[in-house]
Design a protein around this nucleic acid. Structure first.
Length: 108
DNA sequence: AAGGTGACGCCCG
DNA sequence: ACGGGCGCCACCT
């Protein structure tokens, strides 16, 4: 719980709806860190290191290709809540990708 | 204090 | 579609 930067990232991740996923870059942008995709990944990695944070659905964060960056554990969790992965380990972001109110505005 | 390290992403062959 | 290379930037030692 070091500072507000990670907290902002965690807030965004907590907002990802069940059955949907968001990319690292997307989370970064939504947290106000345009070039911070890596920081998001680092923040996720930090979850396993220090204090436990079971309220944060880290498994709903995938890379820009729609793949899991961590492996089977994540895929298992996502499929359990209705997000399918193909044999190549990818999920369809066009279908399961998360779009919040703010972002939907950009499409209009 | 300086340099190494990523749960990333984009641009090019 | 896919791999390689480079840029990014907060964290850790």
């Amino acid at each position: 719980m070091t500072d507000s930067l990670y907290e902002r990232i965690y807030e965004v991740v907590k907002a990802i709806p069940v059955g949907h996923v968001a990319t690292y870059g997307q989370v970064a942008r939504m947290a106000g860190i345009p070039k911070g995709a890596r920081q998001v990944g680092y923040a996720m990695a930090a979850l396993g290191r220090g204090a436990p944070r079971p309220e944060i659905p880290w498994h709903r964060v995938v890379n820009a290709k729609g793949e899991s960056s961590i492996g089977a554990e994540q895929i298992k969790r996502l499929e359990a809540e209705g997000v399918p992965f193909d044999e190549r380990g990818r999920t369809d972001l066009r279908v399961y990708g998360w779009t919040d109110y703010e972002e939907e505005m950009l499409f209009s």
